[in-house]
Design a protein around this nucleic acid. Structure first.
Length: 346
DNA sequence: CTGCATGATTAGCT
DNA sequence: AGCTAATCATGCAG
């Protein structure tokens, strides 16, 4: 009759060692009704569970076995499972659905774009080539640097993959270990398959945060590598003297309109062994720097003017042409007089 | 190491 | 699209 409160009590006291056991009466449901008998059975089982910590290992094993074989065990087990599911799982189950982490997606995309993850080879060199093209490199002397870059990238790639493999292996090992443990324990305590599933997903989440760190540091390494090898600014080389002279010659002989056409740029690029983009850069820089400080460039302007004059003289002495068509202005003439319809620097 | 020179990049304009 | 102006980052002479 007052069995129930006492049971509740002992249940609340789980973990407290040394609970005095009740005498082991009512073993096989004495007289009474069927319901009464079941209640007694449950009380009995719980009591045995409570006292199990006080027993020796052998004794406990025997008791465990006895409990496992008890005819009421499945029923009790199911009930406990059900209760547990209703309380614990339903509370935490709601937040189970997690959207794909945007940061992880970003990292994944970047690794894929850099050719670190994804299919073997091809991607990396393609990215390198694209980056080189974007930076407008001439491509002549940087092929060695490219192979260096590729070597370093594949090194990163290899480290990334071995680490990832290690991680996956560890994750799988741990997961199976935990699953085995839970399956083992599910014989003695209520663990539903759902709960195992949840535990697995918890483990996976923990491990994926490690994976995230791996991806992040790999991305950082790639970024550093990239900036070191592919950022054109970092490997800026001055043009050789000849190229500079060709460009300057054109600039000062077209001082009234130092805006070479596309064709002129192409020709200059060819002569100087640089790209058209570099020619454009050079003229852009030259115009602005000349304009900013004409005085500073005066000497240079005079020198190139003299040179073109000499060239013109040579040309006229050789051929029949009197003077060069597009060099009407003297060396210092840039700012003041001669902007007619041409574009002017302002 | 410092300061200037210089090629490249970027934002904003036309 | 091409340009200017500002800026960045490196090269290099002193």
């Amino acid at each position: 009759m007052d069995e129930q409160p006492r049971l509740m009590h002992s249940h609340a006291g789980v973990g407290m060692a040394g609970h005095p056991g009740l005498p082991q009466h009512m073993q096989e449901g004495g007289g009474a009704t069927d319901a009464d008998g079941r209640k007694q059975d449950i009380g009995d089982i719980l009591q045995q569970i409570m006292t199990i910590t006080d027993q020796s290992l052998d004794e406990a094993q025997a008791r465990k076995h006895a409990l496992n074989c008890h005819r009421m065990k499945p029923a009790l087990f199911n009930v406990l499972c059900e209760i547990k599911e209703k309380t614990v799982l339903s509370i935490r189950g709601a937040q189970e659905e997690e959207p794909p982490d945007p940061q992880l997606m970003r990292l994944d995309n970047m690794l894929l774009a850099e050719g670190v993850s994804g299919p073997e080879k091809g991607g990396g060199s393609a990215a390198a080539a694209a980056a080189a093209a974007a930076s407008g490199g001439a491509g002549a002397d940087n092929s060695a640097e490219h192979s260096d870059y590729r070597a370093k990238l594949s090194q990163i790639r290899q480290i990334y993959h071995t680490e990832l493999e290690k991680y996956e292996q560890a994750c799988n090992e741990f997961t199976t270990h935990v699953m085995n443990l839970l399956r083992e324990q599910s014989r003695t305590r209520p663990i539903s398959p759902k709960e195992i599933e949840r535990m697995v997903s918890i483990i996976h989440r923990k491990f994926s945060s490690i994976q995230m760190q791996l991806k992040q540091s790999t991305c950082e390494a790639v970024m550093i590598l990239r900036s070191r090898f592919l950022d054109a600014r970092r490997k800026r080389r001055n043009f050789n003297k000849q190229a500079t002279e060709i460009l300057n010659e054109y600039f000062y002989s077209h001082l009234s309109n130092p805006y070479p056409s596309e064709e002129a740029k192409e020709e200059l690029a060819k002569k100087c062994a640089i790209t058209v983009a570099q020619v454009s850069n050079w003229f852009g820089n030259k115009r602005i720097r000349y304009k900013k400080n004409i005085g500073k460039f005066q000497e240079e302007a005079n020198m190139y003017a003299a040179r073109t004059a000499v060239n013109a003289a040579n040309a006229s002495s050789h051929g029949s042409q009197a003077n060069s068509p597009s060099t009407p202005n003297s060396a210092g003439g840039y700012p003041s007089p001669c902007y007619q319809s041409d574009r002017r620097i302002q």
